[in-house]
């Protein structure tokens, strides 16, 4: 009975930390004690109802938590991994009752689909792809893109799931012949896909035909940029990048995110906005998430910072809680909720 108790999350006290516009509404405790690596929120159908659930990933176990009343959560499924640890959760939009995970040590070695038996009584996992995988992203229309292989034999593969998460089709995209670091969909353009590469290029594909449309150099000022969001407006491509390697300057502070605009026809680009830390705050981008016009980042200082991309400035700071640095942050799919995680497995849910 005591085990069940530890798997139901606490509701925090009212006097919890409330910095800026962030309000703590819920906390999930990790009873396993192993190192926590990622969190995400997704719809899962339970007893005929689609519920907004939370997925937590520790090194060797991924768990699904369903909402109870009054911001409490109950763990209902857990998938266990014996040999290779979990690196990240990969959500596949438009697929219900299926989540993917990337497993590996420093680099991704496997991507697995996690699902349940048709009666909902037992967990299942299916190996989707394995090898030397560099980047992976779930796409709209039940698709998953991954890039991998050796230097001479790299592949960009699209997998399409059936509605029930079952049988799948495979298709290949033309490879840009340089290592792909991250993928990003172009909002509102379901057949366009972007990638950032190790050579500071942004590449763009046509997902329908598999064509590589353009390779666009964005300059050498920021290495290893991660693309978080892209949208097309008035014939131009707007891209939100984060800069793990950016150095701060006295004038501008430390740029954590940047908005650039690219003309895909000419491949010319210019910077539109730098999203810097407020004065007096130190740290570089460690990891983060962008949803709509809000960007959240965990900094090397252990603090989480939030920017309103339209206003152009940092709107909230969340310092470490209980002497524990933050290690990852995700926006939840509903409302403006922020899921903030610590290495020891505690997940805090904030209303923004």
């Amino acid at each position: 009975h005591s085990t069940e108790q530890t798997e139901i999350a606490d509701v925090p006290a009212c006097d919890s930390l409330n910095p800026g516009t962030l309000q703590l509404v819920s906390k999930l405790k990790n009873p396993s004690g192993s190192c926590s690596v990622d969190v995400s929120a997704m719809l899962w159908e339970i007893a005929g109802f689609k519920e907004q659930c939370i997925i937590t990933a520790c090194e060797y176990v991924v768990s699904l938590w369903k909402p109870l009343d009054t911001w409490q959560w109950e763990k209902i499924y857990s998938w266990h991994f014996a040999e290779v640890p979990v690196l990240q959760i990969v959500l596949v939009p438009d697929v219900c009752n299926l989540v993917c995970v990337a497993l590996g040590n420093l680099e991704i070695r496997e991507i697995r689909a996690l699902l349940c038996s048709p009666d909902g009584k037992s967990e299942k996992q299916v190996l989707l792809t394995s090898g030397n995988i560099k980047a992976v992203l779930g796409l709209t229309k039940r698709r998953l893109v991954s890039s991998g292989g050796t230097l001479c034999d790299q592949q960009v593969e699209i997998m399409t799931f059936a509605e029930d998460g079952g049988s799948k089709e495979k298709q290949f995209l033309m490879h840009p012949e340089e290592t792909i670091l991250t993928f990003a969909e172009v909002q509102g353009m379901q057949e366009a896909l972007l990638g950032t590469t190790i050579m500071n290029n942004i590449v763009i594909w046509n997902l329908k035909t598999g064509q590589l449309l353009k390779k666009m150099h964005i300059g050498d000022s920021y290495q290893a940029s991660v693309c978080h969001k892209a949208y097309s407006e008035m014939g131009l491509l707007f891209v939100v990048l984060s800069h793990p390697c950016a150095k701060g300057s006295k004038l501008l502070g430390s740029p954590v995110f940047q908005l650039i605009v690219i003309n895909p026809k000419t491949t010319l680009s210019v910077g539109v906005m730098l999203y810097c830390l407020p004065q007096g705050q130190a740290g570089r981008f460690l990891e983060g998430d962008v949803k709509d016009h809000f960007a959240a980042a965990v900094l090397t200082s252990g603090t989480i910072a939030i920017w309103d991309l339209l206003l152009g400035h940092c709107t909230a700071l969340l310092p470490p809680v209980s002497d524990q640095n933050w290690s990852f942050v995700k926006w939840s799919g509903v409302d403006s909720h922020l899921l903030a995680g610590q290495k020891d497995g505690n997940i805090f849910v904030y209303r923004y």
């Binding site: 449309l213 605009v261 003309n263 895909p264 026809k265 000419t266 010319l268 210019v270 539109v272």
Partner: peptide
Amino acid sequence: CNKADLGPISLNWFEELSSEAPP
């Protein structure tokens, strides 16, 4: 930023690049 720095802009860039790129 100045739009002129980006060269001629096309609203149908995706279709145009798709017709120009190798299959």
